[in-house]
């Protein structure tokens, strides 16, 4: 099986597809050297993200081990994660400052 998606960090709940993946096809990615797969429940375009696990409405989408924002609806595993169901939340800059 050829790898057609990339996992950027072990903590991530999405992978990025590096080929067009039609509904019903297998998404194959590497995690800690092992091949993992899941079924695409809808068409996922090239460069786009697919949910590895169910992400509830208001949950965080994690890529690079960091939050990309919050979901605006429930996203079941195998579904497309995009700007249509994910939005950016304001930063809390003051809490990120260090004491001098």
């Amino acid at each position: 099986m050829n790898v057609n998606a990339l996992l950027m960090d072990e903590r991530d709940n999405v992978v990025t597809c590096v080929a067009d993946v039609p509904k019903g096809a297998q998404v194959v990615y590497k995690k800690q050297g092992e091949l993992c797969c899941l079924t695409a429940e809808e068409d996922i375009p090239y460069c786009h993200k697919i949910a590895l696990t169910a992400i509830p409405k208001g949950g965080e989408v994690i890529k690079y081990g960091e939050s990309l924002g919050q979901t605006s609806e429930d996203i079941p595993a195998g579904h497309w994660v995009s700007h249509d169901n994910l939005f950016s939340v304001p930063r809390d800059y003051d809490s990120e400052m260090v004491k001098l």
């Binding site: 990025t16 375009p45 786009h48 993200k49 890529k63 960091e66 939050s67 995009s82």
Partner: peptide, 13 residues
């Protein structure tokens, strides 16, 4: 967005 970057956070990271 068409290229799969959904939020400013994702683009920035």
């Amino acid at each position: 967005k068409a290229g799969g970057l959904s939020t400013l956070d994702e683009k920035s990271l």
